[in-house]
């Protein structure tokens, strides 16, 4: 028995692994930070998180070099066994560049492309509003569908896009889009700043069809305590919206 063991995979250049591990532990799971080259220690965890940062300094493009690392095939196998796999920001880029998201076929079917942003070119760090558009996956089950929450984003390549015909409609239909960028009232306006990077359909997070793998550009570990949320530091360590990502992950593991 005991706590569920989550592997936080550190690819060289990532920088969020510590606060991500902290979030995992704070909801009652245990977290092992595993380096990309510790291949023997990866398999056999109950779940996996690919944290944020700049693996390989985003060389060539964000996430692609890490997606080609041998450790990713191990993670793919674990995903096929139904284990929960969460990719946050750079982790999301790795999941997309490896084809694990949307995971409909084994090809790469989408991209998290360079932002289209009239205010700041390249990397952009800000707090956004998100509407939870699907709660039928391992990471958003504890939210209410349609709920509007705040989390921060910090990326230069987060524009979800695809040339795959009909893919976005398919994602919408199947409830695979779990979060969208919105205004504070939950409206998906496509203009900046409500859509901060030009993503198709304001997509901020996508899961696979089975619902056990999710790629999200916002950082839930940075919206874990109310102290972290702008204008809310009076509320100290009370739970902030990002916490429920990790709590949902824990709940999905308790189900079996």
């Amino acid at each position: 028995m005991g706590n569920k063991r989550i592997a936080v995979i550190y690819f060289p250049g990532m920088n969020c692994e510590n606060e991500t591990a902290h979030a995992i532990r704070a909801v009652g799971m245990s977290a092992d930070i595993i380096r990309w080259n510790m291949l023997d220690e990866v398999a056999g965890h109950d779940g996996y998180v690919l944290p944020g940062g700049w693996s390989y300094e985003d060389r060539v493009r964000a996430g692609v070099v890490a997606a080609r690392d041998p450790v990713v095939s191990i993670i793919k196998e674990e995903a096929e066994e139904g284990k929960p796999i969460l990719g946050i920001c750079n982790g999301a880029q790795i999941l997309v560049e490896s084809g694990m998201i949307p995971g409909i076929s084994s090809n790469v079917q989408a991209a998290l492309a360079p932002n289209i942003n009239p205010f700041i070119r390249g990397y952009y760090c800000t707090w956004v509003h998100l509407r939870i558009s699907s709660v039928s996956n391992a990471f958003t089950s504890l939210y209410k569908k349609g709920e509007v929450v705040r989390m921060p984003i910090a990326h230069g390549e987060g524009r979800f896009t695809t040339t795959e015909e009909g893919l976005v409609d398919y994602l919408e239909e199947k409830g695979m889009i779990s979060m969208k960028y919105t205004d504070k009232n939950g409206h998906t306006l496509s203009s900046f700043p409500f859509n901060p990077n030009g993503a198709l359909n304001n997509i901020a997070a996508v899961s696979n069809e089975e619902g056990n793998v999710m790629a999200m550009m916002p950082h839930p570990e940075r919206a874990f305590y109310m102290r972290q949320v702008p204008c809310s530091h009076k509320e100290g360590l009370s739970p902030a919206p990002g916490r429920r990502i990790f709590e949902s992950m824990k709940k999905s593991l308790e189900k079996d």
């Binding site: 944020g52 952009y124 760090c125 921060p152 910090a154 570990e221 940075r222 305590y225």
Partner: peptide, 10 residues
């Protein structure tokens, strides 16, 4: 806003 102000979560 070109800088990451949120990393480390502190």
């Amino acid at each position: 806003k070109h800088y990451d102000t949120e990393v480390k979560g502190l």
